[in-house]
């Protein structure tokens, strides 16, 4: 082999050199071409994301109502939030309750259904599709309107209950249960989370289960000692995504409460209150402060979550 390369003809050397020069030229052009390709995204990044983020950071220290120019107030917005704005605390509490009940429910139900589907089962693709379908509609106005009927005074749920002789009032109209109906709506749309679990379950090598079965491990043991550890990366991903989404839920609460967050602020999501402050009362400085607080909380949460992952997420190479 080496003999061949040493005795290469002048023509080949020439062509190699030529291609090197061409390659350099190509490389130089490549950078220019790359930035042409990137141009739309870069314009959007600067003009619609990074620039606005900085501007809203500035606004969060101001008093601004869109009509007169922003007035610098220092930390006043944050002080008001923490010390004298009752609705801020209500909206925080509502959102946290929603996340604490909604997220684990969605994860558990998704995992259970995915485990049921993860076998050589007939009609698998049909089941998958039907379970997935609601998740495409969960954030739509049409479904929120339907929910208002289903959980209304003479809605579907109460009609079912009345068959069993139970009389209940409107679930949507009762401050104790209104938030619950929104949790149920979020749960109803669990399909997309379930599909990701199912894809993860299919990645687990069957040999592990065979070996465990030969060793005499039962169903429960196999689930706890093989499925769960092998699935922790997917659990991690799903938990993060579902939580971040839950913090940002808006449409169902808006539609079901008619934009008020009622009854008695029981569905006043953080995002809904932010919307009211910013766009109903035009307190744009205050709304910006709330938005940045949300970013900070989500960043801290994600950071802690990533940090915790080293203790409970199993990656195969370790």
């Amino acid at each position: 082999m080496s003999v061949h390369t040493q005795t290469s003809s002048p023509e080949t050397i020439q062509s190699v050199l030529g291609s090197k020069a061409r390659k350099r030229d190509w490389r130089k052009r490549e950078v220019a071409v790359a930035f042409v390709f990137l141009a739309p995204w870069l314009i959007g990044l600067i003009g619609l994301t990074l620039g606005p983020m900085l501007y809203s950071l500035y606004l969060s220290f101001t008093d601004y109502n869109l009509l007169s120019s922003p007035k610098w107030v220092g930390l006043q917005n944050f002080v008001t939030m923490f010390t004298s704005d009752e609705r801020f605390w209500v909206s925080t509490r509502v959102t946290i309750v929603y996340v604490i009940f909604g997220v684990p429910l969605i994860l558990i139900v998704s995992l259970m259904i995915a485990a049921l589907l993860n076998s050589k089962i007939a009609f698998l693709s049909g089941y998958r599709a039907l379970f997935y379908l609601p998740s495409l509609m969960g954030a739509s106005v049409a479904i929120a309107a339907l929910w208002r009927q289903i959980f209304g005074g003479n809605g579907l749920i109460n009609q079912i209950l009345s068959y069993f002789g139970i009389e209940a009032g409107s679930w949507v109209g009762n401050p104790d249960t209104a938030l619950g109906t929104l949790v149920v709506l979020a749960l109803w749309a669990f399909g997309s989370t379930m599909i990701i679990f199912l894809a993860g379950l299919r990645q687990i090598p069957a040999e592990l289960y065979e070996a465990a079965a030969v060793d005499g491990a039962g169903r429960v043991r196999r689930f706890l000692n093989i499925t769960l550890p092998m699935l922790t990366p997917i659990i991690f991903f799903n938990a993060l995504m579902v939580t971040i989404n839950a913090f940002q839920a808006f449409t169902p609460a808006y539609v079901i409460s008619g934009g008020t967050g009622g009854p008695v602020n029981s569905t006043l999501f953080y995002t809904l209150y932010l919307y009211q402050q910013g766009f109903a009362q035009l307190n744009m400085g205050y709304a910006s402060a709330m938005a940045w607080l949300l970013v900070a909380v989500l960043a801290i949460f994600s950071g802690l979550f990533f940090w915790s992952s080293r203790y409970w997420v199993y990656y195969g190479d370790k």
Binding site: E30, A34, F35, L45, T49, P52, S56, F247, L298
Partner: peptide, 27 residues
């Protein structure tokens, strides 16, 4: 393609995926 700051820009891209939309809503 290869271009300067590619990794940094890609990291920013991933970052914007996780960013809640509400922070850019008002501005």
């Amino acid at each position: 393609l290869n271009f300067p700051f590619k990794n940094a820009l890609f990291a920013i891209l991933i970052g914007t995926m996780l960013l809640p939309m509400h922070v850019t809503l008002v501005p």
